[in-house]
Each structure stands twice: as C-alpha cells, then as structure tokens.
Simulated assay, not measured.
Amino acid sequence: MRRKLSPVEAIAEAVAVMGGQRATARALGVTQPTVLRWVRGHCPISAEFVLRVEEASGISRHLLRPDIYPADLGPSPAWKPVWMGVDLGQSPVSCERSSVLQFAQPFEGRNPKATEADGAASVVGGGLAA
C-alpha cells in the first residue's frame, strides 16, 4: 500500500510527471525558480495553479494543497439523516383501488356533478368544486 504524500512530495512528483521544473514552469507560465521554491517547500504552490497542475500531472489537488482542498472525509459522525415519508417506505399516497376514499353521502350543494354510485358518492369529471 502506498503511503500518503506530503504537499512537498506531491508537487515534486507532479513536476517529475510534467517533465521537470523547466517544462512545468513553461506549462504554467511561471519562472523555473518559482517551481523550484514549490519543490523545495519554501512556499506552497499558488492556489491559482493547483487545478492546472492536477490536470496536467494527475496528482490530486487534495495532496498538492490539503489546506485549500481537504480530502472528503464524509459526513461528521454527529450528523444523522432525518428520513421522512417515502424515504422510510411509508408512502402517504396509495394507488391501490381499495384505499380510495369513498364518501357515504354526496357533498350537497358543493358539487352538482357528484352522483350516487354503489352506495358511495363519486365525482364525475374534474374534482370537487369549492
């Protein structure tokens, strides 16, 4: 198993993958002494170059600048999801015919389209009127 690289080791590996200090400097539009300062650990790689170095070298931004791009550690152990309704498998809506509401008496005076059918009121064409 490979050990985790420090930021200085990560930039050194990225520079090697990119073809050396001079090639890295050309690719990023900086001077070779700037790249040398990154490799020796005198200063961290500038935030504006991290993503470009990651793209060119394949070295993760999380290794190059963990202070700016921390590794995803997942949710905090104190975080607990709150699941409601459908997420718990308790659907508030049912499409089964047996669970359809049926009224014992029609809504008198509220919906002239309601009719008696099989001892229950059913709504014909378009829902209840307010």
Score class of each variant (00 low, 15 high):
L88E: 08
L51K: 11
G126K: 07
T31Q: 14
S60W: 08
G41H: 04
A121E: 03
D118W: 03
S99I: 00
T31V: 05
F103W: 10
A129C: 11
C95L: 15
R26H: 11
G29A: 05
L28G: 07
A117N: 04
V53W: 00
M1S: 14
L63T: 08
L73T: 15
R37S: 13
W79S: 09
S94H: 10
F49G: 01
A104V: 02
M1Q: 12
G89Y: 09
I59Y: 05
G125R: 08
P92S: 06
G109F: 00
H42F: 02
R37E: 12
A78P: 04
H62A: 15
V82E: 15
Q102F: 07
D87L: 15
T24W: 07
T24M: 08
V30H: 00
H42S: 06
A121S: 13
R22S: 13
L5W: 10
L28Q: 11
Q90V: 11
I59T: 02
A25Y: 00
T34S: 13
R52V: 03
Q105I: 01
A16S: 13
S94M: 02
E48F: 09
C95S: 14
A14D: 03
E108K: 12
A121H: 00
Q90I: 14
M84I: 15
L128S: 04
I45F: 00
A114Y: 03
T34L: 13
A117E: 12
G20T: 07
T31Y: 06
T115H: 01
L88Q: 14
V53G: 00
Q105Y: 04
Y69V: 06
R2H: 14
E54W: 06
A56C: 06
V123Q: 03
G127I: 13
L36R: 13
R40D: 14
R65C: 09
Q90F: 10
L28S: 12
Q21M: 14
I45W: 02
P112M: 05
S60M: 08
V30C: 12
R40I: 07
R26T: 11
A10F: 09
H42D: 15
P70V: 02
K80V: 13
G89K: 08
W38G: 10
L5A: 07
D67H: 04
Y69E: 08
W79F: 15
D72H: 11
S6D: 11
Q102W: 02
P33G: 06
P112H: 11
A16E: 14
R26C: 07
A121M: 12
P77N: 03
L36E: 12
Q21F: 05
M18N: 07
M1N: 10
A56G: 07
S98M: 00
R110I: 12
I45T: 12
S94K: 01
V93P: 00
R110Q: 13
L73F: 06
K80R: 15
L36Q: 13
L73Q: 14
G19L: 08
P66N: 02
V86Q: 12
P75W: 06
S76V: 04
D118E: 14
